[in-house]
Amino acid sequence: MYEIPQVDLRHIVSKTEWQTRIELAACYRLMVIHGWDDLIHTHISARIPGTDELLINAFGLAFEEVTASNLVKIDVEGNILDLDCPFEINPAGFTIHSAVHKARHDEQCALHLHHTDAIAVASCQQGLLPYSQYAAFALASISYHSYEGLAVNHDEIKRLQDDLGDANFMLLRNHGALTMGKTIGDAFMHMYDLIRACEIQVKLLHSTDQIVRVDQSVIEGIKGQAKIVHTGLTGGQKAWPAMMRRVKRQHPDFDH
């Protein structure tokens, strides 16, 4: 009842799949490090490069229990591809990931969280406001999706896809946050910026009504400025190796 089935796929899957498994498992552990996990709920999914196959967490495992080997390989419809897989996935949670991966073939990773401050900001009619540099990054590519209850309705997929469009940041009204990334590191960095923006907004609204806003012209130009800072790389590409090292120090079993 309390034992986690032990699997070791290191020498069974391709090098590309194994690397994706390692990075996705690291991302799950980063959620724990930052305090962004929600018991066994929410998900991060990643496409195995060059395929239409996805990896996602096994339903029932805490995020600190996710490893490279116990991630579940599925197709975009949520069907488990390994016949002898001892795990299952959460069909309600996968509705969101199925929708965005079908619509955004160029994006490798979708990251969905139930962070308290993200839910608070998403639940406000005005949504995210330009109160910080972090908000400026998110506001340059943000969308919203209305709450429809637990994500088990297949009809919601089209509405979710339409609302997401080509945005990399989404606030799910009354629900949480979603970010997309061309790499797992990019999706993580987008979520980092979005969560920090929401935390700052909630803190400011509790402390003062004299708030200086970021000018719209800055928001419109901030993507170009970021490219200069990262010398052609994305924020994820630049920061991700350091995040991988952090995970290895604090959760050395993640890549098993």
Results as ranks from 00 to 15, higher is better:
153 N>F: 08
166 D>R: 08
18 W>I: 01
65 E>S: 07
43 H>Y: 06
74 I>R: 04
55 L>W: 03
6 Q>N: 10
255 D>R: 03
194 L>G: 05
51 T>E: 01
224 G>Q: 11
128 L>V: 09
5 P>M: 02
224 G>M: 05
86 P>L: 07
208 T>E: 09
184 I>C: 08
188 F>W: 13
50 G>P: 04
219 I>F: 08
119 I>K: 11
153 N>D: 15
72 V>K: 06
142 I>T: 00
195 I>N: 07
113 L>C: 11
123 S>G: 06
191 M>R: 01
191 M>V: 06
179 T>K: 05
109 C>W: 00
75 D>G: 09
53 E>P: 04
212 V>T: 14
13 V>E: 00
55 L>D: 00
92 A>Q: 07
156 E>W: 06
86 P>S: 07
246 R>C: 14
238 K>D: 12
67 T>F: 04
98 S>P: 01
193 D>E: 12
81 L>G: 04
174 N>G: 08
11 H>K: 10
152 V>F: 05
41 H>W: 11
210 Q>A: 15
150 L>C: 07
146 S>Q: 13
73 K>P: 02
164 L>E: 01
168 N>V: 09
213 R>G: 01
35 G>N: 11
149 G>V: 02
179 T>H: 02
219 I>E: 06
2 Y>D: 15
131 Y>A: 00
241 P>L: 11
11 H>P: 01
106 D>I: 04
21 R>W: 03
83 L>I: 14
168 N>P: 02
251 H>E: 11
194 L>K: 05
255 D>N: 15
241 P>F: 08
143 S>G: 07
23 E>Q: 13
60 G>R: 10
214 V>C: 11
34 H>S: 11
221 G>M: 14
228 I>Q: 15
105 H>C: 07
164 L>S: 07
194 L>E: 02
213 R>H: 12
181 G>I: 11
230 H>M: 12
203 K>P: 02
109 C>Y: 05
53 E>V: 05
80 I>D: 03
110 A>C: 14
115 H>D: 09
171 L>C: 03
47 R>Q: 03
126 Q>L: 08
8 D>R: 08
213 R>W: 02
12 I>H: 08
239 A>K: 13
64 E>H: 15
178 L>G: 08
75 D>A: 09
89 I>S: 10
63 F>K: 12
78 G>E: 03
139 L>S: 08
206 H>E: 14
166 D>I: 03
133 Q>Y: 12
188 F>T: 06
190 H>V: 02
29 R>N: 14
131 Y>S: 03
227 K>P: 00
114 H>C: 02
112 H>R: 04
172 L>T: 06
88 E>D: 12
168 N>S: 15
239 A>V: 11
159 R>Q: 12
29 R>P: 03
101 H>C: 12
202 V>D: 03
54 L>E: 03
188 F>V: 14
94 F>D: 05
210 Q>C: 13
240 W>H: 09
118 A>P: 00
239 A>R: 13
243 M>A: 14
16 T>D: 15
249 R>Q: 15
219 I>T: 12
72 V>E: 09
71 L>D: 06
115 H>W: 01
159 R>L: 10
146 S>A: 13
186 D>N: 14
145 H>I: 07
160 L>N: 03
245 R>N: 15
149 G>I: 02
221 G>T: 11
193 D>M: 10
200 I>G: 00
164 L>C: 15
130 P>C: 11
249 R>I: 12
85 C>N: 15
41 H>R: 11
157 I>R: 13
95 T>C: 13
92 A>D: 02
27 C>F: 01
